[in-house]
Amino acid sequence: MIFCIKLPGGLIKWCRVINFKESASGENPGNLKTPSCFLPSSKEPVRFNLYTDFIPLQKIVTNPNLSL
């Protein structure tokens, strides 16, 4: 899975989520704790975690005051 990220400097860069697919499908649950991604060229890694950084729609619907 690819996430796009725009960094200061103008270029859109991309990163691949490490083992995201395996984690999501349950084929590699050992990586479940780190379905994050990073930009190797970035000094400060930009990390996503599907399970903590993303809000399920159901949660937003039940709590309309929740901001993305």
């Binding site: 899975m1 990220i5 725009k6 960094l7 200061p8 995201f20 697919k21 984690s23 999501a24 499908s25 349950g26 084929e27 649950p29 479940l32 930009v46 996503f48 599907l50 399970y51 950084d53 993303f54 809000i55 399920p56 729609l57 159901q58 937003i60 993305l68």
Partner: peptide, 22 residues
Amino acid sequence: QEKGPMATFEDMAFANGARTIA
């Protein structure tokens, strides 16, 4: 993204917050 048994949301999810490129 294909759904998998380890995914914690049913249909869609939204990133918590925005990435800002000032």
